[in-house]
Design a binder for these strands. Structure first.
Length: 570
RNA sequence: GCAGCUGUGGUAUAGUCUGGUUAUUACUUGGGCCUUCCAAGCCUACAACCCGGGUUCGAAUCCCGGCAGCUGCACCA
């Protein structure tokens, strides 16, 4: 692990470049150079392979610009914001609610800014650093704001997470999945947060890439069909208990974690396992990973359970790279309320339920004569009673022989006006709002950790030992010397392999040793060298990046051999 | 956003205090030489004073502002 050295090479060799560099750059943004972009794509493709092909989820792609309504409903417009104030004298910036709480000890969170301004004035609260006066409070919202359309009267925001794009498609998705739980949709793409002062390179970006899956499931049934297959897998868990009481990280099987109630459901544990599997396969091993449960105060108020996957780094310590949360029905309920759409699923019972209940009907023969012109509205009222109201009326009549109804006027309803009927009703199912379990991957951070932990320093060379599946360049082809037609043969082989679908680099500059070194540095797993024997017997040498061992292979057999060496035999 | 420090080819640097030749050196990169497999050697080429303004006959050098990086504070739903 060596951040500085690794980043030097990553910059030199075209993985990560600072954005807008010729205009002196803007922090919180990064460019992926040719190899970085390719590595990132490979990681994302690998993700798709695991979640879409492997789990049967489906990918959607929504806009990155969202109208205000969506983010109002999700809570981002109001809550993704901090009240800020600034000292007029020394210029220091503070969280306004923190200052007030410190000064007079009352919790003012969620008060409007005007009221907080008034509190500051009334209590003569000053800058805690220099005693200067404080400016009016403003909201710092971490979302990028924009206008939609020429008139500019429709406010839009760059999405702060990809998840919302899935929630708002719920009705369509639900139908697509034949209205059967569980089902899951994923989205990969850019999200935006206008961080105040991002200073951790690719770890905290203002524009970043997420890969999120939203798994919609029955709140009553969070079991997972494949759980038994992973029940014996080991997980390293820093539960709330471990953190609060400074205990050793737990080493438990999935089954044990479930039995001991440390992780709340099979599906959540299964997702923890999938995340670990993914990271292991792209070259991030268990010894630099841990699962950390959110502490009660840390958990978003709607989350039922939430685990971060954290990766150890030398420069930034433990870095959150994946969050896996049980969001309950929070998002669907919120969007349902704001949009007036029914965002639920009709769930049929295994067996229809027979429900016994009492209903009240008006006895119309007595009703009309008694209430005359007011009959219709009393009748409507009686016909729309809830179960509780029915028993209330029944009880009143049983006790007093009458029930007084207040309905723009007072009416005495007697037993003779009503017909009580005990009925049995058959109910076939009910509407439920699904719960959502969400694995949320920060692709940029994962890419950083991949670079960091793939980077190997040995006596001879420093290089990226990428997992073969994600190496940005799969094969390098060299002529031993750039003469006597060796170069031409190398070019021919390069073209052939490219046509076969491999990512191939052809390098003729410098000495052969230098070319191996360059290829190793960017983690090319396989190097092919055309030498003078090639002209005699049509064979080339094929060299392994990690062992540096070479073997001779017929040119005709190259594709098969490479495929096998890259473990692409699927 | 605040304070301190810093900013010279792709990378690492000399020069800045005390203004004055064609901006130093090494590595890297491109082309070439070399009878032959792990950054060798030789020749050669490309390539920089963070940006803007000011002072001055003259600014990499002094002054002001901006941007970026590092450290600390604040922030991190």
């Amino acid at each position: 692990m060596n951040h500085d050295k690794m980043m030097n090479i990553a910059r030199k060799r075209g993985f990560l470049w600072p954005s807008f560099e010729i205009y002196s750059g803007v922090s919180g943004f990064t460019d992926y150079g040719p190899l970085g972009a390719s590595l990132k794509n490979n990681i994302m493709q690998k993700w798709r392979k695991q979640y879409i092909a492997g789990e049967g989820f489906h990918e959607i792609e929504g806009p990155t610009v969202m109208p205000m309504e969506v983010l109002k409903a999700s809570g981002h417009v109001d809550n993704f914001t901090d009240p800020m104030t600034k000292c007029n004298d020394c210029g220091e910036v503070f969280r306004a609610d923190h200052i007030i709480e410190e000064a007079i000890g009352i919790d003012v969170e969620s008060l409007p800014n005007e009221e907080m301004d008034k509190i500051v004035e009334d209590n003569n609260i000053k800058c805690p650093r220099c005693g200067g006066s404080l400016a009016n409070i403003w909201n710092y919202n971490l979302m990028f704001k924009t206008q939609i359309g020429a008139k500019g009267d429709k406010t839009g925001y760059m999405r702060p997470e990809t998840a919302q794009g899935i929630f708002i498609l719920f009705k369509r998705l639900s139908r697509f999945f034949k209205n059967k739980l569980p089902f899951a949709a994923v989205q990969l793409g850019k999200s935006y947060r206008n961080e105040i002062s991002p200073r951790q390179g690719v770890i905290r970006l203002r524009e970043f890439t997420q890969a999120e899956a939203e798994i919609f499931l029955d709140p009553e049934d969070k079991t997972h069909p494949k759980f038994s297959k992973i029940a014996d897998e080991t997980l390293y868990l820093a539960s709330q208990d471990v953190q609060l009481n400074e205990k050793e990280t737990l080493e438990l099987t999935a089954q044990e974690a479930l039995d001991q109630g440390i992780v709340s459901s099979e599906t959540l544990i299964y997702q923890l396992y999938l995340a670990k599997k993914f990271l292991n396969e792209i070259g991030i091993n268990d010894d630099v990973l841990r699962f950390r449960q959110h502490l009660p105060g840390e958990m978003a108020h709607y989350a039922l359970d939430c685990w971060d996957v954290e990766c150890l780094t030398d420069k930034y310590g433990w870095v959150e790279i994946i969050g896996i949360a049980d969001r309950g029905d929070y998002d669907l309920t919120a969007h349902s309320k704001f949009s007036n759409e029914e965002l639920d699923i009709y769930k049929e019972f295994d067996e229809p339920k027979l429900i016994k209940k009492t209903v009240i009907k008006p006895n119309l023969k007595k009703f009309g004569p008694a209430f005359k012109g007011d009959s219709p509205k009393i009748k409507t009222f009686i016909e729309n009673l809830s179960e509780d109201e029915v028993s209330e009326i029944k009880a009143a009549i049983e006790a007093d022989g009458k029930f007084t109804l207040e309905l723009d006027g007072s009416y005495e309803i007697l037993e003779e006006h009503l017909i009580f009927e005990d009925i049995e009703e058959e109910i076939k199912g009910e509407k439920i709002v699904p719960h959502v379990i969400e694995p949320s991957f920060g692709i940029d951070r994962i890419l950083y950790c991949t670079l960091l932990h793939s980077f190997k320093e040995t006596e001879e060379k420093d290089y990226f030992q990428f997992a073969k599946e994600i190496a940005p360049i799969q094969v390098s082809v060299f002529p031993l010397m750039n003469k006597d037609g060796l170069g031409e043969i190398a070019v021919e082989i390069t073209h052939d392999l490219r046509e076969a679908g491999f990512t191939v680099d052809n390098d003729t500059s410098g000495t052969i040793g230098k070319r191996y070194a360059r290829a190793d540095e960017v983690g090319v797993p396989i190097a092919i060298t055309v030498d003078f024997d090639t002209k005699e017997d049509n064979t080339v040498t094929i060299r392994d990046r990690d062992t540096e061992e070479q073997e001779r292979v017929e040119i005709g057999a190259l594709k098969e051999v490479i495929k096998e060496k890259l473990n692409l035999s699927l």
